[in-house]
Design a binder for these strands. Sequence first.
DNA 1: GCATCCAAAATTGTATACAACCTCCAATAC
DNA 2: GTATTGGAGGTTGTATACAATTTTGGATGC
Lengths: 237, 237
Amino acid sequence: MDQSPALSAAPAREIPATSEAVAEDLALAIHEHRLPPGTKLSEDEVGEIFGVSRTVIRAAFQKLSHDHLIVLKRNRGAFVAQPTAREAREVFEARALLEPRTARSAAERATPADLAALRRHIDDEHAALHAGDMGRALRLSGLFHIEIARIADQDTICEFITSLISRSSLIISLYWQRRTAICESHAHDALLRALADRDGARAEELMKSHLLDLLSSLDLKSAPEASPSLRAALRRD
Amino acid sequence: MDQSPALSAAPAREIPATSEAVAEDLALAIHEHRLPPGTKLSEDEVGEIFGVSRTVIRAAFQKLSHDHLIVLKRNRGAFVAQPTAREAREVFEARALLEPRTARSAAERATPADLAALRRHIDDEHAALHAGDMGRALRLSGLFHIEIARIADQDTICEFITSLISRSSLIISLYWQRRTAICESHAHDALLRALADRDGARAEELMKSHLLDLLSSLDLKSAPEASPSLRAALRRD
DNA sequence: GCATCCAAAATTGTATACAACCTCCAATAC
DNA sequence: GTATTGGAGGTTGTATACAATTTTGGATGC
């Protein structure tokens, strides 16, 4: 019942939380599994936590619902999404259609400043990994992909990719194979080198195989982990 | 001021209009240019037309905003979107990444029932064209593409494509070159034949060139028609 | 013991009231 | 004549009250 601790860690906002800010905080909590899939999000409770009325919360829920991070059920309420194995495959299939070509475009346009920003992302990600902060590493890894889409200078596609990566974060935290050792793959380093070399074809190919690697590192056979708490597994919705 | 006629033609709904129904009616009105780009949508006015409170209208606006059919400006209100030439190119670029491969998948999965449904869409579209009902023809043309995505059985990609086609409808009605004769291109017929032949490669290629044709049939050089009323052109927002 | 059903409690759906903000226009100063 | 400022009107942002629906708990019957 008391899910405040999962959220109270994040907000600490002063007074007027907008619906965008609420949605962002909730998204982060979902990505980092502080709000596990299947969790019921009560409008009253969330509203009280953020210090705003249900009106604002409902707007935030609508946004999150559109991004498939939560599922709205009429007259039932909002629940943290539980992506199925099929949905996981579909999300990565969509990314496989969009991101490789986008990486190619990025390679043809990247400025030194862009490359430096990517370099920073990678370094931060490595640092987080070595510090054992998987949540932060995962978020930075996503930002690396989003940054590439931004460099490609295609707002529309960038928006789609951003949404897909957001869903991917939830999927990865659900289906990641624990047995895999720390995924210190150097795929991002290789991508950055291709971009620096302005080698669009290589960047496209690297992104393609990187996404395949990512998908194959997921364990989509077994049920979506019901380990930490049985709640999600026992909910019949 | 009095934009009721543009809407009153559509709803005719009995009593309780949901936010989804309102959004759908508004989307149709935008697609068919009954609500021209730049039009201000007042919450009070729309609410009165549909017989619901602003609460419901705001939810509908949020959904339409996410689909880029309207633009929400804080403390200013909702305006029918005016896609720029750049946005038009981006939307078709995104479609070019998604739809050809999706058509290939569809070719590999289409059942006789699927093909019959597509055949019906094409026939209806031709009939609408000959009847001079361009609005209906455009809508059916979009539905043809959506149907192909549905056949491909990829919900995630289908959702993206649906959104892109919705934006395309608005773009086409904005930038379509009047001088082009009735676009009785038989691209859809050719696509259907490729699907019936289970020729995925041909379907992919046909879809690719069809989208290129579509984009090149737009006049993205000239300003987005300010013909019917100067309002849109004169608004400085 | 088990299932069914009904009523109370809780939660969401909708409408409305009030607050905050923007726009517009007129009045004033230069 | 032009620019600035002030206030009135109108629209959106938010909170709250009420209605409708679902959920829950126990009582009843088999």
